[in-house]
Write a protein that binds this DNA or RNA. Structure first.
Lengths: 198, 198
DNA sequence: ACATCTTTTTGACAATTGTCAAAAAGATGT
DNA sequence: ACATCTTTTTGACAATTGTCAAAAAGATGT
């Protein structure tokens, strides 16, 4: 068995980086989180189910989409180092409406909702850390709301290249197109137009 | 002078409703927040400035927009009972890129960033309350990202009516159109098509 | 009640993007 | 190296939405 070659964090390390926590809390987090491996194409969270877990991507990539009129609308795409879940399902405790799918072979670390609640109770300082994490993710969600409202397909793509360019040579264009609210063909034409014009 | 006829909350009451806080914290919040009145059309937060305040809308309505290629893209619209700020500016402490504008005569309650930081330090339980508030607002931001990606103008409008219908007979259609990522003319046509077909 | 300003609707036409189909290019497993 | 499967590109055309202009409807202040 080869050692992991990736350098991404554990859940406890991620929390500690945001807001330093005691060894006891780190232990609690390490004890209550588990590693999880999924193959490309597997479904992490299915619509209609309850989502009781938050995932940290150690390796791989994940996307969320909703079905709308036969089509899939990609809401977000995330890779290593990011926390993912069904945002509405996990926090509202209502059945999930989207699908969360692993789009590369992935290694995830899982935290259970109930364990997190106990953590907030027992170790109040973790509320500080999670408040800060949510502040950051809230900003990201706002970004996603802005890019999707740009009126021209070309501006959306330009914005995507500027802000999420690292995903370009990694994830299939069909997911990028769907994330940008356009068809694969439109994205392909924009890309060829751009490469011809310089 | 007539008594306020609206029943909306103070900042301390809002926090207390999410997570019960002590009288001391309520006092701290009441002491550090101030009421603020703005006329329709006034700018609450301007691009390029630093945003150091979070606002609770007691009465009125507020929207945020970014300028993109000469056009305004409305990111959100909020009314009484909602907390608003420059989401990225306030939390990142970087200059603001959007404009936040009062679209009705409004009464706002203002909380200063630095006062909030002191509150988190002095009264750790407020981190619990704000964590929960952020969980809720994070879900809303996710909704905004989904509605904007719907491929057809008509589905966006239907979704808006279902989820934010109470804003329909209140705020100008031009802001709704902009929020839905379409022109005022397109929205007007969709509405007349719908009223004709039933 | 009237004039004025703002918001919304309607029309004609143009531009952008989507749909369907097929080909080309690239990736994967043996 | 080859066959197969997946992803991306290209073309022709249709549908949707945007643009510009003008009219209609509604709101506001005196």
């Amino acid at each position: 068995m080869v050692q992991n070659s990736f350098s991404s964090l554990t859940m406890a390390e991620l929390v500690n980086n945001i807001h330093p926590i005691s060894a006891e809390v780190r232990q609690y987090i390490n004890r209550t989180t588990t590693e999880y491996r999924l193959k490309k194409g597997e479904i992490l969270i299915a619509p209609g189910t309850m989502c009781t877990r938050l995932y940290l991507i150690r390796q791989g990539a994940v996307r969320a989409y909703v079905k709308e009129g036969g089509q899939e609308i990609t809401i977000w795409v995330c890779a290593e180092g990011e926390l993912v879940t069904s945002i509405r399902g996990f926090f509202s405790r209502l059945p999930v409406t989207e699908t969360v799918e692993v789009i590369e072979d992935s290694v995830l670390i899982t935290a259970e909702y109930d364990d997190m609640q106990r953590m907030y109770d027992r170790y109040p300082e973790t509320n500080i850390a999670v408040r800060k994490i949510l502040e950051r993710y809230y900003q990201d969600a706002e970004e996603r709301a802005i890019i999707a409202r740009m009126p021209r397909a070309e501006s959306k793509y330009a914005y995507f290249v500027a802000h999420k360019g690292y995903l370009l040579n990694r994830i299939p264009l069909k997911y990028i197109a769907s994330y940008l609210g356009m068809t694969l063909e439109t994205l392909s034409r924009i890309r060829s137009r751009i490469s011809r014009h310089k």
